[in-house]
Amino acid sequence: MTALLQGLAIVAILVGTGFSVVAVAGYIRLPDVYCRLHAAGKVGVFGVTLLLVASVALGAQQPGKAVLLLLFLVLAGPATSHALASAAYRMGLGPRAARRNDLPPPPPR
C-alpha cells in the first residue's frame, strides 16, 4: 500500500510539476495579458492540484485539509483571473491579434 501511494505521489509530482512548467512557458509564449491568464490561471491551478494530491499520498498533508485547500483554489483561481483581466481592460490594455473584439471601450478613469 505504501509503495502504491509513493508511486502515485511520484507520478503526481512529475505531472504536476510538468503542468506548472507549461504554465510558465505559456506565460512567456502567449501574446497578451488575456491569453497569458489562460495559462497562468488554469494550467497553473491544475499543476498545484496534482502537487496537493502528491502531498496527501506522501502523508505530508491531511486529506481534509487538502480538500479544503483544493476547494479554495478552485473557487479563488478563476476569480483571480477574472479580476486581473478586468483590471487590464480598465487600464486600457486591449487584446493583441484579436480576430474579433466585442468589448466596448473601457469607462473613463
Partner: peptide, 22 residues
C-alpha cells in the same frame, strides 16, 4: 481545460485564434 490549454501552449505553432465575445 488544463489539458487543452497545455496542448495549445506546447504546440510548436501555437494554433490560437484569440478574441473577445459578447
Amino acid at each position: 481545460c488544463g489539458i487543452q490549454v497545455t496542448a495549445l501552449v506546447v504546440h510548436p505553432r501555437m494554433p490560437i485564434r484569440p478574441g473577445i465575445l459578447a
